[in-house]
Amino acid sequence: MSTTTRRLAFQRQPHLVDGSGSVGVWLTQPAGMLVQLLRETVTTGDIARFISHDAYQRLVGVMRPDERAFFLYDMALMVRYETEARVILTQWGLNVRDRIEHIVIRPPPEMNKLGRMGIQTIAAAMSLARVPIDIVDDLEPFLRARNLRPRLGAG
């Protein structure tokens, strides 16, 4: 696996980084979290648990009780994902669907057909649960349209 990296989603450092240094998470205002792979990464069960537990608990800690959040995933550097990760993230999404305002996923540009089918499976499950979800080539237009920016004082 090469050490390809990319420009950070925001100009400031992430609020959280997983233990491997592969995943950065920014808490946003309005309420949300932007998850970005910081280097070429296999999305594992451990990464899914970091997102669905550690990052989510940090987000909930700064949200109002009735507030709904944006969940943005820049997975452009995902090499592949383990089935366990997909199952964890899908189940978590369904469990917290009442707290979700919108999900936006940026998959890898050259993702194989099987990987795209996995992302489509997640999207279908969330759509059936009436959670707005979009799969995009670029998160920037969504960030601008919703005026999503890093939350100050959350890091």
Rank of each mutant, 00 (worst) to 15 (best):
Q120G: 09
R58L: 03
A48G: 09
A123Y: 02
D74R: 08
I119C: 06
D134P: 00
G155S: 11
R49Y: 06
G19D: 09
A145S: 12
R86D: 03
L152I: 05
V87I: 15
H53W: 04
G93P: 09
I100L: 15
V131D: 03
I122T: 09
R99T: 08
T28C: 07
F71P: 01
F10I: 09
T3M: 10
I103T: 11
E140W: 07
E67H: 07
V60P: 03
G19H: 06
I103G: 00
E84W: 03
E101V: 00
R86E: 11
A48T: 11
L148I: 13
R106V: 14
L139D: 00
L94A: 06
V35I: 15
T90S: 12
T3R: 13
I122E: 03
R144S: 11
T4F: 05
F50N: 01
D54C: 08
T41N: 10
M75Q: 15
F10G: 10
G61Y: 07
R68V: 10
R80W: 10
P141A: 12
G153I: 02
R149M: 12
W26L: 05
G153S: 11
L128Y: 10
V23N: 00
P14N: 05
G24M: 06
R80Q: 14
R99W: 06
V25E: 01
V25H: 00
N112T: 10
P107K: 06
L89Q: 13
A125S: 11
